[in-house]
Amino acid sequence: MNTVAALLGRILLALLFLVSGVNKLFAVNQTESLITGVGLPPNLALAVALFEIVGAIALIFGFMTRLFAILFAGFSLLTVLFFHHDFTDPMQATMALKNLAIAGGMLCLFAHSQMRWSYDSMVIARRGERETRAAEERAREAELRAAKAEGRAEVRHDTVPGTVPARPIPASTMGYVDTNADSVPDRRRRWWELR
């Protein structure tokens, strides 16, 4: 349930910027006049519209979530600073609070961006799988090297003149004895019984 809620929250936050960007794209002249009205350069309208659209699509699919979340948080705070700074006007104060809430939501998304059902989480999962496979391969190679070294050591020991090759001890005489014939070892053999 948490995963579904996080996905819906991410999509709803992104939709706000997607709709805003599309509106700015279809009304570039009005957006440009609003931007120049607060003293910003006039050629920002198209760039802002494209930024909102591209960023929103990236958030919907969970692509570069942390980057776009922090950029949108900063964008929302800059919007309060430039456009909604007159807190005596109730409409401007409401718009400022809305943008502050959006910035807070984006900061939460920045903090918890590695959620399932996103491109970023798939990349992290695949990286983890590759690292696990590489660690398993290294462990397998180390086991093979150890087995080869052990085999070489046994061959050298058996071929050294004057040494007696080790005689394998049968499993039945490994130090335990079954006194009541129930196939369960009952007591440890004494050293003189092992010969």
Score class of each variant (00 low, 15 high):
Asn23Cys: 09
Ala125Ile: 00
Asp120Met: 01
Val38His: 06
Val160Arg: 06
Ala93Asn: 11
Arg189Ser: 07
Phe75Gln: 14
Trp117Lys: 01
Ile169Phe: 02
Thr94Ala: 14
Gln114Met: 02
Ala142Ser: 12
Thr173Ile: 04
Pro42Glu: 10
Ala103Gln: 08
Thr79Glu: 10
His84Met: 05
Ala147Phe: 06
Trp117Phe: 14
Ala149Glu: 11
Ala93Val: 02
Leu81Ala: 06
Phe26Ser: 12
Pro90Gln: 05
Ser118Asn: 01
Ser118Leu: 01
Arg190Ser: 10
Leu77Ile: 14
Asp158Ile: 04
Phe87Ile: 08
Glu129Thr: 04
Ile60Met: 05
Arg145Ser: 14
Val48Cys: 15
Gly162Thr: 12
Ala45Gly: 05
Gly62Arg: 01
Arg189Asp: 03
Arg116Glu: 03
Val80Asp: 06
Asn2Ala: 13
Val164Arg: 02
Phe75Asn: 15
Met1Lys: 02
Phe63Trp: 07
Tyr176Met: 15
Val28Thr: 15
Gly151Ser: 12
Gly175His: 09
Met91Gln: 12
Leu194Asp: 15
Met91Thr: 11
Leu8Phe: 12
Gly62Gln: 03
Lys98Asp: 06
Gly39Val: 08
His157Ser: 11
Leu18Thr: 10
Glu136Val: 03
Asn29Phe: 00
Leu67Ser: 10
Met64Gly: 13
Arg130Cys: 00
Ala153Met: 09
Glu136Cys: 05
Glu32Val: 01
Met91Asp: 11
Ser172Thr: 05
Leu194Val: 12
Arg195Trp: 06
Asp89Ser: 15
Ser20Ile: 01
Asp86His: 15
Leu12Cys: 15
Val164Trp: 00
Gln92Cys: 08
Val19Ser: 14
Gly37Ser: 15
Leu78Gln: 02
Met95Tyr: 10
Ala73Phe: 01
Asn180Gln: 05
Ala45Lys: 08
Val28Asn: 11
Met64Phe: 13
Arg116Ser: 13
Thr3Leu: 02
His157Thr: 09
Arg187Tyr: 06
Ile11Ala: 08
Ile70Thr: 12
Leu78Met: 07
Leu59Gly: 09
Thr88Phe: 04
Gly55Asp: 01
Arg190Gln: 12
Arg140Ser: 07
Leu67His: 02
Ala134Ser: 11
Gly162Ala: 14
Arg187Trp: 06
Thr163Gly: 04
Leu12Gln: 12
Glu52Tyr: 08
Gly62Val: 05
Arg140Tyr: 00
Ala47Arg: 03
Thr159Gly: 09
Arg189Glu: 14
Arg126Ser: 08
Leu81Cys: 03
Thr3Asp: 02
Arg195Asn: 08
Ala153Tyr: 06
Thr159Pro: 00
Ile124Glu: 13
Leu46Glu: 11
Ala58Ile: 01
Leu100Gly: 10
Glu32Lys: 13
Arg188Ile: 09
Ala134Tyr: 04
Leu34Thr: 05
Asn99Tyr: 14
Thr94Asp: 14
Asp178Cys: 00
Tyr119Phe: 12
Ala135Cys: 03
Phe61Ser: 03
Val28Gln: 15
Arg126Val: 05
Glu141Asn: 11
Val155His: 10
Asn23Arg: 11
Leu46Gln: 11
Arg156Asp: 06
Thr132Cys: 05
Leu71Ser: 13
Trp117Gly: 02
Pro185Asn: 11
Leu15Phe: 13
Gly105Asp: 08
Ala49Thr: 07
Ala47Ser: 09
Pro161Trp: 05
Asn180Glu: 05
Leu71Tyr: 04
Pro168Trp: 02
Arg130Met: 06
Ala139Glu: 13
Val164Lys: 00
Leu40Cys: 11
